[in-house]
Simulated scan of single mutants.
Amino acid sequence: MSSRLEELDVFRGLAAFFVVLFHLTTRFDELYGHSLAFSFEIGKYGVQWFFLISGFVIFLTLNRTKSALGFITARFSRLFPVYWLAVIVTTTVVNLIGLPGKDFSLTTASLNLTMVPAFFETPAVDGVYWTLEYELIFYCLMLVVWQMKGLQKIEFICMGWLILQLSWLLSEYYTGYFPWKIRLIFMLDYAHLFMAGILFYRLKASAEGDRYNLVRHCLVILCLGMQCWIDNDLVSCGVVLGLFLSFYLFVYNKLSVICLKPLMYLGTISYSLYLFHHNIGFTLLHKLYILGIPSYVAVPLVMLFCIFIASLATRYVEKPALRFLRSQFTLRNHTTAKAV
């Protein structure tokens, strides 16, 4: 399998763009109201797309990982430096310009730097950051699986995980109770999406004749069924079915047509775009409305501004920090090996 899968970059870019479009149209209208006739409610399913992508990418990464510290360094360098910048910039913009219902103290901003403010019963400085907690939990769980040499038995682990999800749903239905810590630690609300991403990786990485592995396909179908049960919504089930189908097309090499440079560029800046668009975008959009700028002008302007900021953050913070931290890890390992 190629070390760089361009279709995944496109998936990332489209997922981020869909989420941004949902927030600047539908979500902003729900919270503050605007006269924009256009709404993009299905854009919220970009989050589900991200979780599918994470399942695929993290399993791919762990298959190439040589040490736990190497994996931790790679994930830390990818997530935290630009996230810290986003927390600082978002807090500053919201506090200086002002956004109704949002006002963050220094303590709140500081605890957000951990990426898990909910563990400290502290609100996130941006509404989209909740997904990062799930990402971190998933990384930890998968690192445990890797340490236990369970990657090649991942289908059995997925079966057990799905059974745990089923136990949660049945317990909630019949007793109205399930330990919330277990629900959080095992990400029972979204585990099926990460699992599906893992299974798609297994199908993609397997030999041509093994891509019809019945167990893996059945588990993918069960993951989709879990989505339908949890959301209990026909639209949700239909949209996520479309996301699953996009991965199937990718697995069977039918999506090379989407690998266009603008879409791949969106994929390059997708993480920064996700981090910087929400409260910063809302603050700027609210300010433009106060100044009398019509919505059909204000929304595209804010969208372009968010893409511009994400481009700067990716180029001058995210990528340099990633290169520096990973090079330091490589240098340290090389030095230690020579000393030994």
Rank of each mutant, 00 (worst) to 15 (best):
S2I: 11
R4A: 13
R4L: 09
L8K: 10
F11V: 05
F11P: 13
A15C: 11
F18Q: 15
V19A: 15
L21I: 05
L21P: 05
R27P: 02
D29V: 00
L31M: 05
H34N: 08
H34I: 08
S35R: 13
S35F: 06
L36I: 00
L36S: 03
E41Y: 11
Y45F: 04
W49F: 15
L52M: 04
G55Y: 00
F59M: 15
F59K: 15
L60C: 06
L60W: 05
L62I: 07
K66V: 05
A68S: 11
G70N: 08
I72G: 02
F76T: 05
S77R: 10
S77N: 09
L79A: 09
L79R: 09
F80Q: 06
P81G: 09
V82Q: 14
W84E: 10
L85F: 14
V87L: 01
V89P: 11
V89W: 13
T91I: 07
T92I: 13
V94G: 02
V94T: 01
N95Q: 06
L96M: 09
G98V: 07
L99W: 10
D103I: 01
T107D: 04
V116F: 07
A118E: 02
F119Y: 15
F120M: 15
A124S: 14
G127Y: 04
V128Q: 11
E135R: 14
L136D: 02
M142A: 00
V144C: 14
V144H: 14
V144L: 15
V145D: 11
W146S: 12
Q147F: 14
K149V: 04
G150V: 05
L151C: 06
L151Q: 04
Q152F: 01
K153S: 14
K153M: 13
K153Q: 14
M159K: 08
G160A: 01
L162I: 03
L162S: 05
L166E: 15
T175C: 09
Y177G: 12
F178G: 06
K181C: 04
K181F: 09
I182S: 09
R183N: 03
I185K: 06
L188Q: 04
Y190H: 12
Y190P: 03
H192Y: 12
L193C: 11
G197I: 09
Y201S: 10
G209S: 13
H217G: 04
H217S: 02
L224S: 01
G225A: 02
V239T: 09
F247H: 01
Y248L: 05
F250L: 13
V251N: 11
Y252G: 14
K254M: 06
L266W: 09
Y271D: 03
Y274L: 11
Y274M: 15
I280R: 11
L285K: 13
L285N: 15
L285D: 08
L291S: 10
P294L: 00
S295Q: 08
S295C: 04
Y296P: 08
Y296V: 13
V299T: 01
V299A: 00
V299D: 01
P300R: 03
V302Q: 05
M303C: 14
T314I: 00
V317H: 06
E318T: 08
L322N: 07
R323D: 08
S327F: 03
F329V: 05
L331T: 12
N333V: 03
N333P: 09
N333K: 10
H334E: 03
T336S: 12
T336V: 11
A337H: 12
K338R: 10
K338V: 13
V340C: 07
